[in-house]
Design a protein around this nucleic acid. Structure first.
Lengths: 121, 121
DNA sequence: CGGGATCCTATGCGATACTG
DNA sequence: CAGTATCGCATAGGATCCCG
């Protein structure tokens, strides 16, 4: 870390994955190519506008590919780029820490409540 | 990834490290205990308000410790908790990907510009 | 079906001033 | 020194409607 991490060289990477729905989208695309409507179904609370904008941002960063089939009705498929797959170990690392963190905070809250209880007795 | 990453279990972890100044603060604290004013000097553009609020959030997540010395003038020291240090491999992973991503996008932009130039000839 | 355009709200963040 | 309080702006994100 000493030598590798400058003042905030994290930001460029975080830009790529931060966004209210980006990791949900990535989660689905890691499981294979999906149509716009499939993503909508998989992420029920997202609006078309947000789905579109988040997909565009991921596309700009070369994480995903957008393929338009010139048919009617329109058909658009999204998939990870080969480069996008290099994100997997990073996301996996974040994800695993997040899981243990949730547990850590759960345990911590319990013990803090216990302390409070003891003090109020 | 298949088995480990749910819809968006990334968010709890991202909450911890996302924030305009958090990674800068963490960067400094990974190098050792720092006083409030030292952090301010190390991060010239941050305001007291933001420094305070970001430190408070990191503290709530048990990433950093705040130690107040009852002296005058006041002295407050911030340091990573032992638990906070478990973030290091994660941050390092994000950071490294971010560096290579910056390079990837630089190269990509060059080649896109080349294509444009060719088309306009 | 896969968007775009418009309008609106909520939050993050900054600037400034005050305080024990 | 290490904060807090107040104000205000900019951006992220949501709701709704329209379109080829």
């Amino acid at each position: 870390m000493e030598h590798t991490m400058e003042a905030c060289a994290l930001d460029p990477a975080l830009d790529v994955i931060v966004g209210k729905w980006k990791c949900s989208i990535l989660f689905h695309l890691f499981h294979g190519t999906k149509r716009f409507s499939e993503l909508q179904k998989g992420i029920p609370d997202i609006t078309k506008k947000m789905l579109t904008s988040q997909l565009r941002e991921l596309e700009e960063h070369d994480i995903i590919q957008r393929v338009v089939y010139p048919v009617v009705p329109p058909k658009v498929e999204y998939s990870l780029t080969e480069y996008g797959r290099t994100l997997e170990p990073v996301l996996s690392s974040i994800h695993q820490w997040g899981r243990s963190h949730a547990e850590h905070m759960r345990v911590r809250r319990s013990s803090l409540i216990l302390e409070d209880t003891r003090q109020s007795l």
